[in-house]
Amino acid sequence: QIFVKTLTGKTITLEVEPSDTIENVKAKIQDKEGIPPDQQRLIFAGKQLEDGRTLSDYNIQKESTLHLVL
């Protein structure tokens, strides 16, 4: 699982696999929060994550925290 922290300070927990794409993660966030993926920007280690890449591409491991910017 990974954590996604929103600007409001809320933390969302997501069940993911390293092979999941960023697009996939955004879809999971939409399921939980109702935020359309095209409004979501995910930041990890100061980098904006691209939809077509996977979590493992960015070396995002379990218990990692991503930041969600709208």
Rank of each mutant, 00 (worst) to 15 (best):
Q1T: 15
Q1G: 05
Q1A: 09
Q1W: 15
Q1C: 15
I2N: 01
I2W: 02
V4E: 01
V4S: 01
V4Y: 02
V4R: 00
V4N: 01
K5C: 15
K5I: 15
K5D: 04
K5Y: 08
K5E: 07
T6Q: 07
L7W: 15
L7Y: 15
L7T: 11
L7D: 12
L7Q: 14
T8K: 11
T8W: 15
G9C: 08
G9K: 04
G9H: 05
T11Q: 07
T11C: 15
I12G: 01
T13Y: 08
L14M: 04
E15D: 13
E15A: 11
V16F: 12
V16M: 08
E17S: 11
E17A: 09
E17W: 10
P18S: 09
S19A: 09
D20W: 09
D20F: 06
D20M: 10
D20Q: 04
D20V: 04
D20Y: 07
D20T: 09
T21R: 08
I22E: 00
E23S: 13
N24P: 00
N24C: 14
V25G: 00
V25R: 00
V25M: 05
V25S: 00
V25Q: 00
V25T: 03
K26Y: 03
A27W: 13
A27L: 14
A27N: 12
A27R: 15
A27M: 13
K28V: 04
K28F: 06
I29G: 00
Q30C: 15
Q30K: 11
D31K: 12
D31L: 15
K32Q: 11
E33V: 13
E33H: 08
G34M: 05
G34P: 02
I35P: 04
I35L: 06
I35M: 05
P36D: 07
P36F: 06
P37V: 15
D38N: 11
D38I: 10
D38Y: 11
Q39D: 08
Q39C: 14
Q39N: 09
Q39V: 11
R41F: 14
R41A: 08
R41Y: 11
R41Q: 12
L42P: 00
L42T: 00
I43H: 11
I43L: 13
I43W: 15
F44K: 03
F44Y: 13
F44I: 03
F44H: 06
F44T: 02
F44G: 02
A45T: 05
A45F: 09
A45R: 14
A45Q: 14
A45G: 12
K47V: 15
K47T: 13
Q48I: 13
Q48D: 12
Q48M: 15
L49W: 01
L49D: 00
L49T: 03
L49K: 00
E50H: 08
E50V: 08
E50L: 09
D51F: 04
D51L: 06
D51W: 04
G52D: 10
G52E: 10
G52Q: 11
R53A: 08
T54D: 03
T54L: 09
L55M: 06
L55R: 00
L55S: 01
S56N: 09
S56F: 11
D57T: 05
Y58D: 02
Y58N: 02
I60G: 01
I60A: 02
I60W: 02
K62C: 10
K62M: 15
K62P: 15
E63Y: 15
S64F: 09
S64M: 11
S64C: 08
T65F: 08
L66G: 02
L66E: 01
L66W: 02
L66T: 02
L66Q: 01
H67W: 12
H67L: 13
L68P: 00
L68Q: 02
V69C: 14
V69N: 06
L70A: 09
L70M: 11
L70T: 10
L70P: 09
L70Q: 09
